[in-house]
Structures are given as C-alpha cells and as structure tokens.
C-alpha cells in the first residue's frame, strides 16, 4: 500500500543518495553549531550556526539572549558600536563579562574593527548606526563564513541568514503606581533566506523566579486548605 508518507520518504532517500554521490551534502557545507538557550530554540530550531549573520530588529535583550549560552560555554564576544548596551543585563543573561570586549565608538574605522573582530572572536554583536556600506557588509559576511564567527547585528542587515523582528513585547508585573517589571512575552517574526514566509513565535524572555516560587507556595497552600476543609467536613 503506497501512502503519501512512504512516497515522501522514498523521494527523500533518493535525493540524499544523489547528494552524497555528487558530494553536495548539505551537512558538509553547514558549519557546526553554537549552543542556544532553551527558551530560544523555537526561534532558531536549526540552532546558532557558525558563520551565520543574524539580524535582530527591535530588541537588545534578544541579541544578548542569543549569545548568552555560547558565551557561557567559553566563546569570546565583541560588542562593536553599542555604546548604550546594558552590561548588567548582559551579565544577568549569562554572558561572561571576562570574555567580552566592548568597542563602543569605532568611528570611521568600523569596517576594519569589525574585520579584526570577525577574524579572531567567536561572536560579534554589531550595533546600529555604524559607518559600514552594503559592500562592507557583504565582505564581512563572507569573512564570517570563512572564520566561523557568528555575527548578531542590530537593525537590518541585507543578506542576513535569519532576520528576527520583534513585533511587540508585553510586560507583566507593573500596575498603577505599584509592582515592578517582572515578566515579558515577546512576539518575534522570523524570516530567513532559506525559509518560507514569516513565522511568528512568542518567547518568554524574562521569567520571574520569585513569582513562580510564590505561585507554587500559593497553590500548595490552596491544596492544604482543601485537604483541611475535607478533613473538617
């Protein structure tokens, strides 16, 4: 009995056989992966591939969260042209500040600076408003592919492998004059060179551990109340 599934499997097997025979295996051309935080796996299900350029629009936190796990695992990180980045937030997200170099104002040397960083660092974060042309960007992307450096750029980057655009963020925990910012859900639109139309994913970037704990205790207290109530009845 030939179903659609078996036909698809047979077609895929044939394609793979041709690929291996011709030496056009996709695995061979794609670089190895850097680790990604668990919460962000829905954004980049294929992982943070070395040599890729990822453009992030609308959120600095997302940029920091993307590279946090890699930095914790020992990657060297450079932040070029980001004078306003909150390093405390970076540290809280898990970036190891001992392996971070901050180059806040590269000025007219921006292409040369980025070139040096891309050649010798593992992850390079690029800020907005740098003096780099589209030709520079193409050249830098090629160098990144060669050296296996991950470039995470804020704003638009023509030719980026993945473009993440933050559509909206919703904060929880703030009231009318009381509370504080606690949790945030972010809606991110993902477009990429090798993917179809934009996908939208909601990620929870900031999880308030205290409120989770308090919620658990409240729930447990409610359970105990119920148990007591049944006992009394």
């Amino acid at each position: 009995m030939e179903t659609q599934g078996t036909r698809l499997a047979a077609a895929r097997a044939a394609l793979r056989a041709v690929e291996t025979r011709m030496g056009a295996d996709r695995k061979a051309t794609e670089g190895p992966l850097l680790e990604l935080d668990d919460a962000l796996v829905p954004l980049l299900p294929r992982g943070l591939r070395k040599g890729q350029v990822i453009a992030v629009e609308g959120s600095t936190s997302l940029v920091l969260a993307l590279v946090a796990r890699a930095s914790l695992d020992g990657a060297w990180t450079a932040m070029v042209g980001m004078p306003n980045v909150g390093m405390l937030a970076a540290a809280r997200r898990g970036i190891d500040l001992a392996r971070v170099a901050l180059i806040p104002y590269p000025g007219v040397q921006a292409p040369a600076t980025l070139g040096v960083c891309i050649d010798d660092m593992d992850v390079v974060m690029v800020g907005q408003g740098l003096a780099i042309s589209d030709a520079d960007r193409r050249r830098l992307a090629a160098r990144a592919r060669e050296s296996g450096c991950v470039v995470v750029a804020m704003g638009r980057w023509p030719g980026a492998h993945v473009q993440l655009t933050v559509d909206g963020a919703r904060w929880a925990g703030l009231g009318a004059g009381e509370g504080r910012l606690r949790e945030r859900d972010m809606t991110v639109a993902i477009t990429g060179r090798s993917t179809g139309p934009a996908r939208r994913v909601v990620v929870c970037l900031d999880v308030d551990t205290q409120s989770v704990r308090r919620g658990a205790t409240v729930r447990r207290a409610a359970l105990e109340d119920r148990a007591l109530g049944t006992g009394a009845a």
């Binding site: 060297w76 390093m87 405390l88 540290a91 500040l97 001992a98 392996r99 971070v100 170099a101 901050l102 180059i103 806040p104 104002y105 590269p106 000025g107 040397q109 040369a112 600076t113 040096v116 960083c117 050649d119 010798d120 660092m121």
Partner: peptide, 25 residues
C-alpha cells in the same frame, strides 16, 4: 584566548587605548 587578546591589542593600536574596553560588575 590568545587570539582574542591579540586581536583586542591590535584594535587598541587602531582606535587608541580607550577604544576597547573590558567591563566588570
């Protein structure tokens, strides 16, 4: 590590000593 240190020292030559910063909390 050695490569990253060398790269940053090269950039300091390019941008001046305060052009490359190391941060701590």
């Amino acid at each position: 590590d050695a490569r990253a240190h060398r790269a940053m020292e090269r950039l300091q030559g390019l941008l001046g000593p305060e052009g490359v910063l190391a941060v701590s909390e």
